[in-house]
Design a protein around this nucleic acid. Structure first.
Length: 332
DNA sequence: GCGACAG
DNA sequence: ATCTTGTCGC
């Protein structure tokens, strides 16, 4: 049997990240005069209904214009700016659209959603699923002498600073740190944080590797395998950069708490993918789940080893403080 | 009315 | 995540 290793490396690279605002603009141009569409219809054309919230924010942050043919699923106009809503109403009325007494449009005869679009989010989700298959969540890993931390802070909506720190487990001291400042090309969408923050994380990791090897285990601010497609940001960092990662999230994206009262295991579709942990000083739990290269139990042991006090483990706290400090300095 | 989803 | 006044707790 022949050995084929041709695309092994290539397949691990990040996919081309689409320009989502541009794709949205292309969709708006397609809506015919005299028709309207909904935020959800646009989101489905982009490939995922969950993008509807982002679309509403994105369009709502612009003055009325190319998006005046977009309304809510109920037929109401979106937003709270009454002047702008009156203007939108006039523009739609000028195209022959009728409003009911309650101010809504009857979508039955003017809703249009026959978009032509490559559905970029569907492709990104498929890539995340491929990544999840490569993620290891079973290896038992001993607590290493050094544990790393990764976090990102924002200078502006499209500019960020990533920070990497290394903590000596025995003393809790920071023994190494580095930062990387870069443009961010993708918005925050629930479930798609990977495409917003993975590139800057990878750039920082590459920079660090020029200088020294990474810590054996790295905590990443965000979800691990406890993700709708088992592919949170910590999975992306671990599989693509080939390192051991643990997702440390302040909020639970998905999954159900099972067995274990104060610190329940977290399950998704019948698989245990994480655990809620409460520190000694804090009352709000953190959601721990493996990114890549270790089991839930090993991930929990590593986090506990660097979480003596405070709201969050030392590597995450230090990476957060450092990235925030550098991002703030970059503003001034 | 309920539910609400990393950063 | 970031934007921000007042407020609560150690």
């Amino acid at each position: 049997m022949g050995i084929r290793i041709v695309n092994r490396v290539e397949s691990l690279l990040c996919p081309r990240i689409p320009n989502l605002p541009w794709e949205l603009g292309e969709l708006l141009k397609q809506i015919p005069a005299g028709c309207v569409t909904t935020f959800g219809d646009l989101a489905e054309a982009l490939g995922d209904l969950t993008a509807a919230r982002w679309i509403a924010q994105e369009l709502g942050s612009h003055p009325i214009g190319p998006w005046y043919r977009v309304v809510k699923r109920t037929g109401e106009l979106a937003g709270t700016d009454s002047d702008r809503m009156a203007l939108q109403r006039d523009m739609l009325a000028a195209e022959g659209l009728n409003f009911n007494d309650d101010g809504r449009i009857d979508l039955a005869d003017c809703r249009w959603c026959d978009f032509t679009c490559p559905a970029p989010l569907r492709q990104l989700a498929a890539w995340q699923s491929e990544l999840a298959v490569r993620a290891d969540g079973t290896t038992e890993v001993a607590i290493p002498p050094l544990i790393g931390g990764l976090d990102v802070s924002y200078v502006s909506d499209n500019q960020a600073v990533a920070a990497y720190v290394e903590i000596d487990v025995a003393s809790g001291a920071t023994v190494f740190s580095a930062t990387h400042h870069a443009e961010i090309g993708f918005p925050y969408l629930t479930g798609y944080l990977t495409f917003r923050e993975l590139p800057i994380h990878l750039a920082l990791i590459e920079q660090v590797r020029q200088e020294k090897p990474l810590a054996k285990v790295i905590l990443v601010d965000g979800a691990g395998q406890l993700h709708p497609r088992r592919s949170g940001i910590a999975v992306g960092v671990g599989v693509v950069a080939d390192c051991v990662t643990i997702g440390v999230a302040k909020h639970r994206l998905c999954g159900r708490a099972v067995s274990g009262d104060p610190e329940p295991l977290l399950e998704l579709n019948g698989a245990v993918l994480g655990q809620s942990l409460i520190g000694t000083t804090s009352r709000k739990p953190l959601q721990i789940s493996p990114g890549h290269g270790l089991s839930v139990a090993s991930a929990v042991a590593c986090v506990r080893a660097v979480w003596k006090h405070g709201r969050t483990p030392i590597p995450i706290r230090e990476a957060d403080a450092l990235s925030r400090r550098v991002a703030k300095a970059a503003k001034a």
